[in-house]
Structure formats: C-alpha cells, structure tokens
C-alpha cells in the first residue's frame, strides 16, 4: 500500500503535501493505474492527522483527474500519465531544476520573474520543436 509522509517543517500545507506525493508517485510509476490509495482511515492512522486533511487532498486529486473515488470501496489511480520517467531520471531532473532555481534566486529573480522566464523559454523551445 502507498505510504504518505508529512514534513511539518516545510511550511507546505499538509493536504498539499499529500497531493504532491501522489502526483509525484504517479509520474515516477510508484503508483499505477488502478492502484488503490490508502483509505481515509488508513492515511489518518499512518500520519495521525485530521481526516478532513486527507479528504481535501483526495478531492483535489479527483478534481485534477488523477484519481477516481469509488464510494464504499476506495480511491483509485485513474490513469497513468502519457509519459512516466524512472525515479532516477526524476531525481536527476529535480536536482537540475533546484540548481537552476538557486542560481536564479542568487541573481535576484523573484517568483514572478522566474515564472515569466520559464514561460518564455518553454514557448521558445516549443517553437523550435515545431519549426
């Protein structure tokens, strides 16, 4: 069964941490289509958290189309994304992005500037690919 963890020092709201963990696990293939997420009671018992936190995370995942709730049975991973990457590749991409973000912050870019730069580069890369 899938196991959640919570980092109480991260400042990220607990329900969002759960959402991120499911999203990431689906991306790297730790969770596959049809896998059952922990029941709310199971997650609550794993983490000693308020049940509403888990329901809220599951609602958000459902809203994103990542999971399907089946009443009385549980919540299941709806579909694998078109592209999955290996955990090692995922970790490598993540490290690269972290390095880049630290450089950008050191250069004085704030969140807005970083977001804008990312959007511009993505558009340019997409255009190159199309050309």
């Amino acid at each position: 069964m899938f196991v959640f963890q919570l980092d109480s020092t991260s400042g990220v709201p607990p329900y969002l941490q759960l959402v991120h963990q499911v999203r990431q696990a689906i991306t790297v293939g730790y969770l596959r289509e049809g896998d059952r997420l922990p029941l709310i009671r199971e997650a609550v018992e794993q983490l000693a958290i308020n049940p509403n936190t888990v329901s809220k995370a599951y609602r958000q995942l459902e809203h994103e189309g990542l999971v399907d709730p089946r009443p009385g049975v549980g919540t299941f991973v709806a579909r694998a994304p078109d592209v999955t990457v290996s955990p090692a590749q995922y970790a490598k991409l993540r490290r690269g992005l972290e390095r880049w973000l630290r450089e950008a912050e050191a250069a004085g870019l704030d969140d807005h500037a970083i977001g804008a730069l990312l959007a511009i580069v993505r558009r340019d890369v997409a255009e190159e690919g199309a050309a």
């Binding site: 609550v44 018992e45 794993q46 000693a48 958290i49 308020n50 049940p51």
Partner: peptide, 14 residues
C-alpha cells in the same frame, strides 16, 4: 504522543 493521536484520529473516522 504520535501513537495516542493515531488512535484518536482513527476513532474520529470510525
């Protein structure tokens, strides 16, 4: 403390 709160929260669900 963790074990106590785990039992307590599971009871809230039940």
């Amino acid at each position: 403390r963790r074990e106590f709160l785990q039992v307590l929260m599971a009871t809230v669900v039940d």
